[in-house]
Design a binder for these strands. Structure first.
Length: 415
RNA sequence: GGCGGGGUGGCAGAGCGGUCAAUUGCACCAGGCUGUAAACUUGGCGCCCUUUGGGCUACGCAGGUUCGAAUCCUGCCCCCGCCA
């Protein structure tokens, strides 16, 4: 049997407290770590949302810490449950996905997953491995183990029920399937956000029934998104992706509300507890400008998902572009055929072109209507000058800026 | 199976024959202030045309009545609840 290093007292403390919501049962988990046996750490993922956010990173960082002791991660590709749509924390039924979409998403997801988790100590297990051979009898047997009342204990089901929102019968199957995964892979500990608690506990029950030692349940707190209010999630648009380019990541981190700075440090960095505590205190006491620890946070995190050099670059990019409002020296280029632009959107004798049209073409505005508004509201700059004239002369290499953070260098494709 | 309620823009939720591209809140975008924080403030928020102007597409789906329908009628689909 594979073995793992026994954690030191400090490591143990870190693993069971920092960025941890709850470990059930706590003592059993500690005992397991101290046994020296390599544990199987299960984490499921839902391939309906292929992009990993910093919210996911909270839990993945814990997995990584445990891997560093020699434990094994078992990642479950939820190719069946994704077709159901996880009802956890959802206020609505989610759409089902096709197998093709699932496969595509899984590839994207795993690439990002291994930015944090050690590939060498990871087992990838698609649910279809055990569920494709499931038949109706198996499903009925599984479903018979739970009652409707038990299912309705789940906070989100209960809430939807109360609010007279629809709950699909198939959604009740979701926790059961996820729980069965634990039986299939013989997991020792399952990880998830606090919203997963119910599902994770179902795994314990099913394992016990199957004569296995029930897994421990390890939940991590949910990271609040950039709006500072609700759980970070892609569908709410308040997320920071682990795959976000350094500048974006840095900028998004700078935009989180001050009151969330400390918890971001706590959940996403290795900055020691006492330092985090002092940052928290000085922000509350207003003894330092919150922008400073926030910059540090942004650097720490960008360095983690990219590297130190990128973090430095992102920091100076940020200061130049947003603090001083200068143009960055590297502006993404967009190629446009000047001649066809002139024939399509000619606006004058001199070869000028309609600016709103151009903005829409460049993808800097959703459409010409929006572009028109932006121009009117003085949100458009060309080569550093605010433009209000809806006509514009094309110039190779011209730099167009819309709002604070959209800019493009226009290059003539005809050349 | 019976009875009742309901389907409106990203969400919530008004409107119930013309003045409705549709009140309002949230979210979002942009300007001001600033630290891409908070608070505040101004404008905007279906698409398209250069316009205080015009066109097109929209209020579950399909038809119909009407000079005119998100608003009335018919059929269909879907959701919620109660009773069985």
């Amino acid at each position: 049997m594979a073995s793992a290093r026994i954690p030191t007292a400090a490591e143990l403390d870190w693993l069971t407290r920092r960025a941890v919501a709850e470990i059930i049962p706590h003592d059993e988990f500690v005992k397991a770590l101290q046994s020296g046996k390599a544990l199987r750490l299960k984490m499921g993922f839902d391939p309906s949302a292929p992009d990993l956010t910093l919210g996911h990173a909270v839990g993945l960082r814990k997995l990584r810490q445990l891997q560093d002791l020699g434990h094994t991660v078992v990642i479950i590709v939820g190719d069946w449950t994704a077709q159901i749509g996880d009802p956890s924390g959802q206020s609505k039924t989610r759409p089902m996905l096709t197998q093709e979409q699932v496969n595509e998403n899984a590839a994207t997801y795993l690439r990002q997953f291994f930015k944090i988790v050690d590939r060498e100590l990871t087992e990838i297990r698609p649910q279809s491995e055990w569920f494709s051979s499931f038949n109706l009898a198996d499903v009925v047997r599984l479903a018979a183990k739970f009652t409707v009342a038990q299912m309705l204990e789940r906070a989100d089901f209960a809430e939807r029920f109360r609010a007279q929102q629809p709950i699909g019968v198939h959604e009740l199957l979701y926790p059961l399937l996820q729980g069965y995964d634990s039986v299939a892979v013989k997991s020792d500990v399952e990880f998830g956000g606090t919203d997963q608690k119910f599902n994770l506990l179902v795994g314990r029950d099913l394992q016990a029934e199957a004569g296995q030692k029930p897994q421990c349940v390890y939940t991590v707190p949910l990271l609040v998104g950039t709006d500072g209010e609700v759980k970070m999630s892609k569908s709410l648009g308040n997320y920071i992706g682990v795959d976000d380019p350094p500048n974006d990541m840095f900028g998004k981190l700078m935009s989180i509300p001050d009151r969330r700075i400390a918890e971001y440090f706590e959940y996403l960095t290795d900055v020691p507890d006492d330092e985090v505590a002092s940052i928290r205190e000085s922000i509350e006491a207003r003894t330092l400008n919150p922008m400073d620890p926030k910059k540090r946070l942004a650097r720490e995190i960008v360095a983690q998902f990219h590297d130190t050099a990128s973090a430095d670059d992102a920091a100076s990019f940020f200061e130049r572009t947003f603090s001083k409002r200068e143009l960055p020296d590297e502006v993404p280029e967009q190629r446009v055929s000047f001649s066809s632009a002139r024939s399509e959107a000619a606006a004058g004798e001199d070869g000028a072109v309609k600016l709103p049209w151009l903005l829409a073409q460049l993808g800097m505005a959703a459409g010409t209507s929006e572009a028109n508004r932006l121009v009117k509201q003085r949100a458009v700059e060309v080569d550093g000058e605010v433009v209000t004239d809806p006509q514009i002369a094309l110039r190779d290499g011209m730099i167009i800026r819309v709002g604070k953070h959209r800019f493009v260098r226009v290059v003539d494709e005809d050349k």
